[in-house]
Design a protein around this nucleic acid. Structure first.
Length: 508
RNA sequence: GGUCCGUUCGUCUAGUGGCCCAGGACGUCAGGUUUUCAUCCUGAAGAUCAGGGGUUCGACUCCCCUACGGACUACCA
């Protein structure tokens, strides 16, 4: 098993949009594969036809593509171990169930879900737990209790049946987990899981093991919610005689809600007002829209960086990581054992870091996209300069509008608090004089305006406090925004003077 | 209820027996820079290492118990 090629898979089921915890699982698989020169596979686990959601599969692919998580094999890229969608592999599983049935590792069971439900309720009423296992299978309707003739008769009569795994008694099942070490469970506590459903589809457990084996998966990196079923999976490898090539397991810690405890869920996003999905998702059933990081103005690099550090760290103080740096430094040994609470503040900080280091042209393009949705047109070169001026104060791409709307819309009202504090009797005249002076400045750019105005104020013996806030008020409408010279330069001479005139005429 | 996993500042975490009366980052607070706001810079507060027992000359680090939290417990994945 040494020197086996690293082959990992990310195997979501298309029951809805990929949620941020799933993204992290996909990311860790990708980083691990690339680090070791291995192969990253995208397999779609759609054995439950009742939960299939149209659009979910393409959403998963688009989201991972947006984030820069690439696959070497998978539904969308093909490969030598396909098909990569379990519904397309339906025929394959039959042969393997038969193998188990033939060598006594599985049996046929006729109990209906309703019958079992009644049994569960009955046991519950007595504060006991019903389990379909070695203790109960002798009293139920299955090929272990029925005669061969009865079984055949039932099957021929079209009676629905499932195939269950026959969990052996009294053995210790050991799961060697790369993150948690050895986990030991007694087989007596494990139940006879359904491997093959009455609808002719395998369950997750069967399909998963067969596919991992057939696709030569070397490492299974998945969420901690799978740890309880790992012993069953180990037993399945044993039953098939595939112990030698059984993959190594690594169960990742869960992503927790920001407040309180518990697994992060779709609900939390709505409740706390932050996205739990990489991209916006339109639910065809409820017609509700869930927000996404992409549409909220986050950069994929920031989302990746933030997620990578949630449950893993390099052991150094380095926090800003590009994807290729992550690949270089990633290791399973440094994944932590305990769940990590999702902290939006930290995510924002990462985004800000990425935003301020982005080229102004890239930012301008993103901003332009937002503006065009608002039906606002602007010269690209103007947007590039504007982004340069505003980027320090922005966290998300959306903030460019919040921080710079007044470059597009003249003030329609003036902050009363600023008027009260900074608008004196002599202010209008001072502004008129300033406007006259601005008229003479050439070129009307930031450094020129800045030094010219400074000299002008000094010559006229006007204090900064006497005029700057009032000037800002007429240009912006409040006391916010970047330096005055920057605002004036971007607004242009004509508009700057016009706003001064309008302000004087409006403010009493 | 049962099984399994986990537990270091509010949050993410460093720490693999002495370097730790515990380090970094986010957040918070204070000061500085700035004509405003933000950025930025400096600093501060913030964890009796869940609690209790051991082992050891010495424990955040090893062992046991307890508490708390979580996951799982479907013909869902």
């Amino acid at each position: 098993m040494k020197n086996r090629q690293v082959r990992v898979r990310f195997a979501p089921s298309p029951t809805g949009p990929l949620h941020i915890g799933g993204v992290r699982t996909a990311l860790y698989n990708y980083l691990f594969a690339k680090k070791l020169g291995g192969v990253n596979i995208l397999r779609i686990e759609d054995t439950d036809q009742t939960r299939f959601v149209p659009g979910a599969e393409s959403y998963i692919i688009d989201a991972l593509t947006w984030l820069g998580i690439k696959f070497d094999e998978g539904v969308h890229v093909g490969g030598n171990y396909g098909p990569y969608r379990q519904s397309d592999r339906k025929e394959i599983y039959k042969e393997y169930v038969d193998q188990l049935l033939n060598n006594g590792w599985a049996y046929i069971a006729f109990d209906t879900p309703e019958e079992l439900d009644v049994l569960r309720k009955k046991h519950e009423a007595q504060k006991k737990t019903f389990q379909y296992d070695s203790s109960s299978r002798g009293q139920l309707r299955n090929s272990l209790t029925l005669s061969k003739e009865e079984v055949n008769a039932l099957m021929n009569s079209g009676q629905h049946y499932v195939v269950r795994f026959k969990m052996p008694e009294n053995i210790e099942v050991k799961v060697n987990d790369l993150i948690r070490g050895e986990v030991v469970v007694s087989s007596n506590l494990l139940d006879d899981k359904v491997l093959f459903k009455s609808d002719g589809m395998p369950t997750y457990h069967l399909a998963n093991i067969v596919d991992d084996h057939l696709m030569k998966i070397s490492h299974v990196i998945r969420g901690e919610e799978w740890l309880p079923s790992a012993p069953l999976h180990v037993m399945l490898y044993k039953a098939f005689g595939w112990e030698d090539t059984m993959p190594q397991f690594a169960h990742l810690p869960l992503l927790l809600k920001p407040d309180g405890n518990g697994k992060l869920s779709k609900r939390d996003g709505d409740r706390l007002g932050f996205p739990v999905f990489p991209m916006e998702w339109f639910d065809p059933k409820t017609t509700l829209i869930s927000s996404g990081y992409r549409e909220s103005g986050y950069f994929p690099e920031a989302v990746i960086n933030f997620l990578a550090l949630l449950g893993w760290n390099p052991g150094t103080e380095k926090e800003l990581y590009s994807m290729s740096e992550l690949i270089q430094d990633f290791s399973i040994e440094r994944i932590s054992k305990s769940g990590a609470k999702f902290d939006l503040e930290k995510a924002k900080w990462f985004n800000h870091e990425y935003l301020i280091h982005k080229d102004n042209k890239v930012l301008a393009e993103a901003f332009n996209l937002q503006l065009s949705k608002m039906k606002i047109r602007a010269k690209f070169s103007f947007l590039v300069s504007l982004c340069g001026v505003l980027k320090d104060r922005c966290i998300l791409v959306h903030d460019f509008w919040k921080e710079g709307y007044f470059f597009f819309l003249p003030p329609d009202e003036y902050d009363p608090a600023v008027i009260k504090k900074k608008w004196k009797a002599e202010t209008p005249q001072l502004l008129i004089n300033l406007a006259d002076f601005l008229q003479t400045i050439e070129p009307f750019d930031e450094p020129t305006i800045n030094s010219a105005v400074n000299v002008y104020l000094e010559e006229k013996q006007i204090g900064m406090g006497q005029i700057m806030n009032a000037w800002r008020l007429v240009l912006v409408g409040s006391n916010a925004g970047p330096a005055m010279a920057q605002i004036a330069a971007l607004l242009g001479k004509e508009e700057t003077i016009r706003r001064i005139e309008v302000g004087i005429a409006t403010i009493k």
